[in-house]
Simulated scan of single mutants.
Amino acid sequence: MSEEILEFCDDCGKEFNVNDLSEDGVHFLCKDCFIPLCKQCENPLDKNTDFCSHDCYKKYWAEIIGDEYK
């Protein structure tokens, strides 16, 4: 029998099983409160992707690759 781990949504304050929450790097958020953000410009996304545009995708990876050579 596995234990259910409960955690509060940091936005609405309701209690959920931790497996039902998303983490934005700092906060636990329920599916109603979680809004995915573009990894580059942090604009809200309306679909299940990491970037809002191809330009943000290119800029993100250019910065990552550039940091490796510093």
Score class of each variant (00 low, 15 high):
residue 39 K to I: 04
residue 9 C to T: 02
residue 49 T to G: 07
residue 46 D to M: 13
residue 41 C to P: 02
residue 49 T to N: 12
residue 8 F to P: 05
residue 67 D to C: 08
residue 19 N to Y: 07
residue 60 Y to R: 10
residue 12 C to L: 01
residue 37 L to W: 01
residue 45 L to A: 06
residue 36 P to A: 04
residue 44 P to H: 05
residue 13 G to E: 03
residue 5 I to L: 06
residue 7 E to Y: 03
residue 20 D to A: 11
residue 54 H to T: 07
residue 58 K to V: 13
residue 44 P to Q: 05
residue 38 C to V: 02
residue 47 K to N: 03
residue 62 A to L: 12
residue 54 H to G: 10
residue 7 E to N: 08
residue 15 E to L: 15
residue 3 E to L: 14
residue 30 C to T: 04
residue 12 C to T: 01
residue 9 C to I: 09
residue 52 C to A: 03
residue 50 D to A: 05
residue 13 G to W: 05
residue 35 I to S: 11
residue 52 C to M: 00
residue 29 L to E: 09
residue 53 S to N: 14
residue 5 I to Q: 12
residue 22 S to R: 11
residue 39 K to N: 02
residue 13 G to T: 01
residue 40 Q to L: 06
residue 68 E to A: 02
residue 38 C to A: 02
residue 41 C to N: 02
residue 61 W to Q: 04
residue 7 E to W: 04
residue 48 N to V: 06
residue 40 Q to R: 07
residue 69 Y to R: 14
residue 70 K to W: 05
residue 3 E to S: 14
residue 41 C to K: 01
residue 40 Q to N: 07
residue 33 C to R: 00
residue 40 Q to G: 05
residue 68 E to Q: 07
residue 60 Y to T: 07
residue 51 F to V: 06
residue 53 S to H: 13
residue 17 N to K: 15
residue 62 A to K: 11
residue 19 N to I: 01
residue 22 S to A: 13
residue 37 L to H: 01
residue 45 L to M: 04
residue 32 D to C: 11
residue 63 E to A: 06
residue 28 F to M: 15
residue 14 K to L: 09
residue 57 Y to P: 08
residue 61 W to V: 02
residue 19 N to W: 06
residue 58 K to P: 15
residue 38 C to M: 00
residue 68 E to I: 01
residue 53 S to Y: 03
residue 13 G to C: 01
residue 2 S to D: 12
residue 16 F to I: 08
residue 57 Y to S: 13
residue 31 K to F: 02
residue 58 K to G: 15
residue 8 F to C: 12
residue 6 L to T: 14
residue 43 N to I: 14
residue 63 E to W: 08
residue 69 Y to V: 10
residue 62 A to I: 11
residue 59 K to I: 02
residue 46 D to N: 13
residue 9 C to W: 05
residue 48 N to A: 03
residue 52 C to N: 01
residue 34 F to S: 00
residue 65 I to Y: 03
residue 60 Y to W: 11
residue 43 N to T: 11
residue 62 A to F: 12
residue 1 M to C: 12
residue 59 K to V: 00
residue 64 I to M: 13
residue 34 F to Y: 00
residue 11 D to R: 00
residue 11 D to K: 00
residue 23 E to G: 10
residue 11 D to Q: 00
residue 8 F to K: 09
residue 15 E to Y: 15
residue 14 K to H: 12
residue 34 F to H: 00
residue 61 W to M: 04
residue 13 G to Y: 06
residue 19 N to Q: 08
residue 20 D to S: 08
residue 7 E to S: 09
residue 23 E to V: 11
residue 18 V to C: 08
residue 1 M to V: 08
residue 21 L to G: 05
residue 17 N to E: 10
residue 39 K to P: 01
residue 35 I to M: 10
residue 46 D to Y: 12
residue 19 N to L: 04
residue 36 P to K: 03
residue 36 P to F: 02
residue 40 Q to P: 04
residue 36 P to Y: 00
residue 33 C to I: 01
residue 54 H to M: 10
residue 38 C to F: 02
residue 70 K to P: 07
residue 18 V to R: 09
residue 42 E to L: 07
residue 22 S to N: 09
residue 47 K to P: 03
residue 46 D to S: 13
residue 6 L to N: 11
residue 51 F to W: 08
residue 43 N to E: 08
residue 24 D to W: 11
residue 39 K to L: 06
residue 23 E to P: 09
residue 64 I to V: 14
residue 48 N to S: 05
residue 57 Y to E: 14
residue 30 C to E: 05
